[in-house]
Amino acid sequence: MARMKFLCDAERCIECNGCVTACKQENEVPWGVNRRRVVTLNDGVPGEKSISVACMHCSDAPCMAVCPVDCFYRTEEGVVLHDKDVCIGCGYCFYACPFGAPQFPQAGAFGMRGKMDKCTFCAGGPEADNSKEEFAKYGSNRLSQGKLPACVEMCSTKALLGGDGDVVADIFRDRALKRGKGAEVWGWSTAYGKPDKQQAPKGAKS
């Protein structure tokens, strides 16, 4: 059985936020909730890296472990989903998740948390496949339509990979073998200068 996984290739991500927009559009995610975000490390410094982050559908999910009402479940493909009818909005999953995936609606009155919302790998929820109820609560169920998550298919540089974990791993392995790493990467000297001349001389104007 295929196991669904996301993998973001930091060498390719150009921080365009296309994945974030695709997710918002596809699932009609409410205001204040971001199922996917692009995080930039060392922003503004040459060699900065961006990674697209959402629920990683962990094999040993901490959110599942801490949920007091046991609203999480894992599908046969390893996608971690939750039942909004069972969720009590306690926020334990929010504190347990190392990726900041669980989100809570911000539009409620008096700081009310409401039901948790997170990336579903575009696999909907416990309602009937592609029903109105499922779309309203969890968004699109592309997996049952024979497609992959909208963010993955939208990515223009194919930095964000997703789908069968074995295939994704093979694709990434091939890339890493072809391009090398660090200064061996194709185009590195064009973008950042030669490795030994990376730092501009003092007093130079950019």
Binding site: A2, E77, D129, L148, I171, D174
Partner: peptide
Amino acid sequence: KRRSKGYEATAHVRNYYRTAKV
């Protein structure tokens, strides 16, 4: 109720894998 049709390596999905290899 939680059972869904789930993932299938359709032509659409295989086409995506092909484009990701570029």
